[in-house]
Simulated assay, not measured.
Amino acid sequence: MSLPMVGFTALPHVGGILGGFIRRREVYTWYASLKKPSWCPPNGAFPVVWTSLYTGMGYGSYLIWKELGGFTEDAVVPMGLYGLQLALNWASVPLFFGVSKFYYSTMLSWYPVSRTASLLLAPYLAWMCYTTAIRYCIWRDNPDKKE
C-alpha cells in the first residue's frame, strides 16, 4: 500500500467527517422533526453508505492520478472536475441541497483514463440521485420548516 493511495482514498472522508460534526445535532432536532418519504433510509444507514462511497471515489481518484502520471497537464480536467465535485459534495451538507451535474462530468472525464475508476463513481451517482429525491420530497412536504 502506497502513501498516495492511502491519501487519495482518505481525502473524501475529511469533508464527510466535518459534515458529520455540522449535522450531528440537527439529525436529532431539526431533521427529526421533518416529514420524510416512506422510502427514506434510517439515520444509521447514512454513515455506512457514505463511508463506502467516499472510499470508492477516493480510490478511483488515486487510479486516475496514477494512470495519468501524477498531477500532469492531462490530469487537470479529470482531477479538477473531481475536486469541484468533492467540494460541492462537502458543501451540500451545510447547504442541504447540492449540485449534481458535476458527477456525470467527472465520470465521463475519468472513463477514457480508467474504466474502473469511472465505474467506482456509479454507486456515488446513484446515491446522489436517491438523496436528491429525498431532499426534494422533504423540501416539498415541509413548507413550514423552510428557512
Rank of each mutant, 00 (worst) to 15 (best):
M1F: 09
L3N: 13
P4E: 02
M5L: 07
M5E: 08
V6W: 08
V6E: 07
G7N: 09
F8K: 01
L11H: 01
H13P: 01
G15S: 03
L18E: 11
F21G: 14
F21Y: 11
I22D: 15
I22A: 15
R24P: 00
R25P: 02
Y28W: 14
Y28K: 15
W30M: 09
S33H: 14
L34H: 12
P37V: 08
S38K: 11
C40S: 15
P41K: 07
P42L: 04
G44P: 09
G44W: 13
A45Q: 15
F46R: 09
P47F: 03
V48S: 11
V49R: 02
W50D: 04
T51L: 12
T51W: 06
S52F: 13
G56L: 10
G58S: 11
Y59Q: 10
Y59R: 12
S61W: 05
S61H: 10
Y62A: 07
L63I: 00
W65D: 07
W65S: 02
W65E: 07
K66Q: 15
K66W: 11
E67L: 03
L68T: 07
L68M: 13
G69Y: 09
G69V: 02
F71Q: 10
T72R: 08
T72L: 08
A75L: 07
A75W: 03
A75Q: 07
A75K: 04
V76L: 13
V76M: 15
V77Y: 11
V77P: 06
P78W: 01
P78K: 04
L81F: 06
Y82H: 03
Q85R: 08
L86S: 01
L86D: 01
A87K: 05
L88M: 06
N89R: 03
N89C: 01
W90V: 03
P94T: 02
L95F: 12
F97M: 10
G98I: 00
V99P: 02
S100N: 13
S105C: 15
T106E: 02
T106S: 04
M107P: 00
L108F: 14
S109Q: 04
W110L: 07
Y111T: 07
P112L: 06
P112R: 06
P112S: 07
V113D: 05
T116H: 12
T116W: 05
A117N: 05
A117T: 01
S118V: 00
L119P: 03
L119D: 05
L121R: 00
A122I: 09
A122K: 00
Y124D: 05
Y124G: 03
A126F: 12
A126R: 11
W127E: 10
W127S: 12
M128K: 13
Y130P: 11
Y130M: 12
I134W: 03
I134L: 04
Y136Q: 09
I138G: 06
N142V: 07
D144I: 14
D144S: 12
E147R: 14
E147H: 14
